[in-house]
Design a protein around this nucleic acid. Structure first.
Lengths: 133, 133
DNA sequence: TATGCACCCTGTAGCAACTACAGGGTCAAG
DNA sequence: CTTGACCCTGTAGTTGCTACAGGGTGCATA
């Protein structure tokens, strides 16, 4: 199939497919007479894998590792589990950060009295004492 | 004060200070005889403002808007509130995404039987039916 | 006096993971 | 024969920095 077909089959941008090829995540496909890329089902499967892993928030480097591991069917699954667990820990860290942020920000907004900037508590919180007058 | 002093006073990288100047977030300071930047308290206050806003997750464009608003002390605080509220909504969106992701990923990891890759459920979930054998 | 060290300067390239052109070729339909 | 939908390569832009390379300044010490 041509690049447009494979891209839309995986809800991927055409440029992104070419980008994955360029960075070695997708092997270079055969070319037809017009020099158009000609992908097979193996490419489609690999691209689907990449997309799913990306949707789960894995980095491209992690995807690369997962793809390598997936190719070695006899190997222990432990390495796969390690990558996924590391990723989960990272997500938990981000969640905690974001939740703390949300708390601070919503407290700030809740305090807003809708007056002028001069006594805006949001600005006041951001500005160090004495700034701007 | 020189750049190093201001940077350490605000827990900012020296390069970041120069970067903020370059993109117009900090006004260019005076220079001394050796062409070193010479910052005043107004610069320090402005940089503190920027850092606090960044710590709250505002983008540099939002910080720029907030700084503009903060300078206009008579203006209504509503515009400030709008920026902060938009940011809060964005954080909530990210939180929801991340929580959904976390759920999927932890379910995946919980299912792992620690066998070989051939019957690894993580790989199986990522790979489309029939890939890799 | 030399020299070592901490500090400063400019300018450019790199990171992640794409996205968006510019400038061109190919192919089938009307 | 031209219009439109595709495809190609290659480069530059995005966000918010960070990391050099290659140089200058200023003070203390041997």
């Amino acid at each position: 199939m041509k690049i447009g077909e494979m891209a839309s089959a995986t809800a991927t941008n055409i440029e992104t497919v070419r980008y994955y090829e360029k960075i070695g995540l997708l092997p270079p496909p055969a070319r037809d007479a017009a020099n158009y890329r000609s992908f097979g089902n193996d490419h489609l499967a690999r691209l689907s894998f990449i997309r799913r892993a990306r949707d789960l928030g894995f980095t491209l480097d992690q995807v690369r590792e997962l793809l390598d591991l997936a190719d070695d069917r006899a190997r222990s699954c432990a390495a796969v589990d390690a990558i996924a667990s590391a990723h989960l820990a990272e997500i938990d860290r981000k969640l905690a950060d974001l939740q703390a942020l949300r708390g601070e920000l919503s407290r700030l907004i809740g305090d807003c009295r809708q007056g002028t900037v001069a006594d805006c508590l949001i600005i006041e919180t951001l500005a160090p004492a004495g700034m701007g007058q």
